[in-house]
Design a protein around this nucleic acid. Structure first.
Length: 588
DNA sequence: GAGTTTGAAACT
DNA sequence: CAGTTTCAAACTC
């Protein structure tokens, strides 16, 4: 593949057609050729300290093109690669979206999505590919690792597929796209290396690209500017850069965006190269939403519409950056996590359903759960199914037959919590001590923005709408994954809910941030004496918590308020360490 | 490829 | 907040 040439721009389609060899290393060669340099990443404001640090480092090498950052409130945009039909914005960073995953990887689109895990793995691998002498790169890696954590995505489905081999995925067709993300799953998701909580941009994985493969800055920056900045775009990206390399880039951009003008162009429906959780390459066909609503998969995924799309009246284009951003902000204001990945955490389906639920608490699940009624959660109408995850108690589906796991009604709770639960409701809330604090710490550290959201908007989706649970009767948990229980029992109806709420969201985020281990820590580790207790799978379910208006129980607990002692940011480098101690030592 | 079904998102 | 409408993807023919 020509891609080996620095600065060379390859259209995604081309890539798709490329030889397997080319694909094999797409996360390396491909990305490298894609000009994805770390400096194309834009860190979101919430992470200023850290991100800037990182940027600083990153940019050090490359004269920083980075200033492309939009101001951030709604996240900065990332140019995934000039040539890539899609331009990506970094929703992940801005808290709202813990991760925008696979699709963020430029060029990964059609045939291969790079899962976060994959990236992580790549990063963690003995950097054969990474010249150690490149301090800058090293820096990148660090940053990358952290980010990877967030990006773990579902695609449990994919795992199976992925197990087969990465290579095959290369030539994938639509389905592959979907499956590709899974591959990491085959690996134990622990991703210790990635343990650092961080910004959910796995694009940083690019850092691992052998330096020699890294495209010269000039080209990149031009590309970025052209594509990312509205101004730049408007100013005719194609002409913006005289350099040959740049020209290529520019042209690529133009091509990528070409269909902007030709939106209505009959691109016919294309496969939705989607990995299910909404993260893969998007190809929308919006007609009325102008691609500025969540209906639009591109918009929802945080990418600009592009050539593959067959949308009409599309406004989700770089040239409408402002509009897009404002719209995005608007949507986020309504729902801070509107752009967050729908499926959180990846895990083996088996685990999820399974026996070892205790040990593998971190099961993938849909952010909010589905609400299927007729599809039985067996079709892609079902977001859970689509995301390759089983339904959970968060779901309100009817007649769930989700192949990845039917909705469950149980949740794991720690003994401690049980104890607490045994106390009166209030007690339940208040007594939750450092563990929760720790959780909060982690949470915030991992995603300050999100934390903030939580504080201000308890409605955060990830605070699972258990409330939505239908009367338990509707579905019986096929298997017990997470048990609930006790606390719900111990505490009165309200209390348990609180407890559950407290855990769930944090676990989820912790998982995303720290990986399975983290959640384990949180659950068990945080309260050492308490092994997770599994309540009889039977069927007892927690009544849906009502995260009511205003302050959620969490707020009531004041845990959030305890954030006082929480460092605004995890240390850039070794956060894990910091976090772990806390989590591990419950009441230090 | 057109039409239908479905459920999320948006609206009231 | 629940019910309704709108929307676009998924699906069927």
């Amino acid at each position: 593949m020509d891609s080996s040439q620095p600065g060379r721009i390859v259209h995604e389609n081309q890539l798709c057609e490329q030889s397997r060899d080319g694909f094999v290393a797409y996360d390396e060669d491909y990305l490298a050729t894609e000009e994805l340099n770390s400096d194309m990443l834009r860190l979101a404001p919430p992470f200023d300290a850290e991100t800037q640090l990182m940027n600083g480092t990153l940019n050090a090498d490359n004269a920083h093109s980075g200033t492309l950052l939009t101001d951030g409130s709604s996240g900065s945009y990332i140019n995934n690669a000039a040539h890539d039909p899609h331009l990506y914005w970094d929703g992940a960073v801005d808290g709202s979206a813990m991760d925008y995953t696979p699709q963020l990887l430029p060029g990964v689109c059609q045939n291969q999505l790079v899962s976060n895990d994959q990236l992580c793995n790549a990063l963690t691998e003995p950097s054969n590919h990474m010249p150690m002498d490149q301090s800058a790169l090293s820096q990148h890696m660090r940053g990358t690792r952290r980010r990877c954590l967030f990006n773990e995505k579902a695609g449990a489905v994919n795992k199976a597929a992925k197990k087969t081999s990465d290579r095959h995925s290369a030539n994938t067709t639509t389905p592959r796209c979907k499956t590709s993300s899974s591959d990491h799953n085959s690996k134990p998701m622990k991703t210790p290396p990635c343990a650092l909580p961080g910004i959910g941009l796995h694009l940083n994985a690019l850092a691992t690209i052998p330096k020699d493969k890294i495209v010269p800055y000039a080209a990149q920056s031009s590309t970025i500017q052209a594509s990312n900045f509205p101004s730049a775009v408007s100013s005719s990206p194609a002409t913006s850069e005289p350099n040959t390399a740049n020209e290529d880039s520019s042209q690529a951009i133009v091509v990528a965006n070409a269909d902007e003008s030709g939106q209505g162009s009959p691109k016919k429906k294309r496969h939705k190269f989607d990995n299910g959780d909404g993260t893969s390459c998007k190809r929308c066909s919006c007609k009325k939403s102008k691609c500025l609503k969540l209906y639009c998969e591109c918009f929802h995924a945080g990418v600009f519409c592009s050539e593959p799309c067959s949308c009409q009246g599309c406004l989700n284009k770089p040239s409408n950056m402002e509009t897009v951003l404002s719209t995005r902000e608007q949507i986020e204001s309504r729902n801070p996590l509107a752009f967050a990945p729908k499926v959180i955490r990846t895990s083996e389906p088996g685990q999820e359903l399974g026996e070892q639920s205790n040990k593998t608490p971190a099961s993938a699940r849909h952010k909010r759960g589905c609400n299927c009624k007729k599809s039985s959660c067996l079709k892609k109408y079902c977001e859970c199914f689509q995301g390759g995850v089983g339904c959970s108690i968060s779901c309100r589906c009817e007649g769930c037959k989700n192949a990845f796991g039917r909705r469950e009604g149980v949740v794991l709770l720690s003994i401690e919590q049980a104890k607490q639960g045994s106390v009166e409701n209030i007690a339940c809330v208040k007594e939750e001590t450092s563990e929760n604090d720790n959780q909060l710490v982690i949470y915030q550290a991992a995603n300050p923005a999100s934390a903030e959201n939580v504080l201000t908007t308890p409605s955060v989706e990830d605070i699972r709408p258990l409330s939505a649970l239908p009367p338990s009767s509707s579905k019986r948990p096929r298997s017990s994954t997470k048990l609930i229980g006790h606390s719900s029992r111990l505490c009165n109806s309200q209390a348990p809910l609180k407890t559950d709420i407290l855990l769930s969201p944090f676990e989820s985020y912790a998982e995303m941030v720290l990986g399975d281990g983290a959640s384990d820590v949180l659950k068990g580790g945080s309260s050492p004496q308490t092994s997770v207790k599994v309540v009889s799978p039977n069927k007892k379910r927690i009544s849906p918590p009502r995260i009511g208006t205003g302050l959620s129980p969490i707020c009531k607990n004041g845990r959030k308020l305890i954030l006082k002692s929480i460092p605004s940011f995890p240390s850039l480098c070794g956060d894990v360490n910091k976090v772990d101690p806390k989590t591990s030592s419950p009441a230090s």
